[in-house]
Design a protein around this nucleic acid. Sequence first.
DNA 1: GCCAACGTTGGC
DNA 2: GCCAACGTTGGC
Length: 141
Amino acid sequence: MATFLVKTEPGEYSFAQLVQQKRCMWSGVSNNTALLHLRTMRKGDDVLVYHTGDERAVVGLARVAGAPYEDPQRPGLNAKGEPKFAVVDMTAVKAAKTPVPLMRIKDDAKFKNFALVTQGRLSVMPVEEPLAAVLREWAGL
DNA sequence: GCCAACGTTGGC
DNA sequence: GCCAACGTTGGC
């Protein structure tokens, strides 16, 4: 079972909305690297949800509800003739007891090669297991 | 509001 | 195919 981290601007879609809806289609990912990561998601994988903007913290946990699929709102093919945009369904698990601020992650040497720190604009990324466990512990998830 | 770090676009 | 210009993301 893998763990991922996804970013969202809470003014557009927040973890609280996901909790309220219980399930959502995670869409709007356009960056190619992010899409590559999204396509590696599998049912049952964990997803740490991070709020950008004023919050800048890991705020909750979700779970991948099924295999990624083509974005029904944005049909279109890439150069290889594959669907260009992918989405994935996820369900809310629970909110972090203690949101984990970006500063705390940046300040810890363990995370110095973590994509959240090194690739500021990447919106979907895998979280390797030792680090995923640390984030879960810090967040109380 | 600024700007660094990318990604994308379009002229050549 | 290169690269300058432009757009976007997201931290500060």
